[in-house]
């Protein structure tokens, strides 16, 4: 009986994990893709972890409950990473099937553009080719400080 219950939990968990990743593959834009991993995968892995807790509690002498920690942790963190990813995608103006409503925060988007320029600059600086073109000021100041 227990074996059937465990098999059911494991298969459900694996199927949901699979469907979550399938959503990652099939759906068309980032915002819809975000739905798959945050929901399906969370419950899928949750089922697998509970199956593991039940398995180790019954097949060994000691009660094993620490899998609950990972389950709780995933349930708390999955929405946070999804929220941050959605924020980053909105910030970068990725294309979306759904119409993105016009923001009232005009001044904020102004500073956002400046930040994007900053990122581009820092990427340029980290590129070794561009470093060769222009001398890096940091080295000079370091040299001056040394004596």
């Amino acid at each position: 009986m227990l074996e059937y219950f465990l098999s059911f939990l494991i298969l459900t968990g694996a199927i949901f994990t699979f469907i979550g990743s399938l959503g990652l593959l099939r759906l068309k834009d980032l915002f819809t893709r975000l739905h798959g991993p945050t929901k399906a995968t969370t419950l899928g892995v949750g089922c697998l972890l509970i199956a593991s807790a039940v398995y180790f509690s019954t097949y060994t002498e000691a009660i094993s409950l620490h899998e609950i920690l990972i389950t709780l942790f995933l349930f708390i963190t999955a929405p946070i990473s999804a929220h941050l990813l959605a924020k980053a995608a909105l910030h970068l103006d990725l294309q979306s099937i759904a119409k993105i409503p016009e923001n009232d925060e005009v001044e904020e988007s102004g500073t956002d553009a400046a930040i994007i320029d900053d990122i581009k600059d820092s990427v340029k600086e980290s590129n070794p080719a561009s470093i060769n073109d222009t001398p890096v000021p940091l080295d000079e100041t370091d040299l001056q400080k040394k004596p």
Partner: peptide, 12 residues
């Protein structure tokens, strides 16, 4: 985010 078909994207 955890409930059916919705995802919170940004807080004003």
């Amino acid at each position: 985010t955890l409930t059916p078909g919705t995802l919170s994207a940004q807080l004003s």
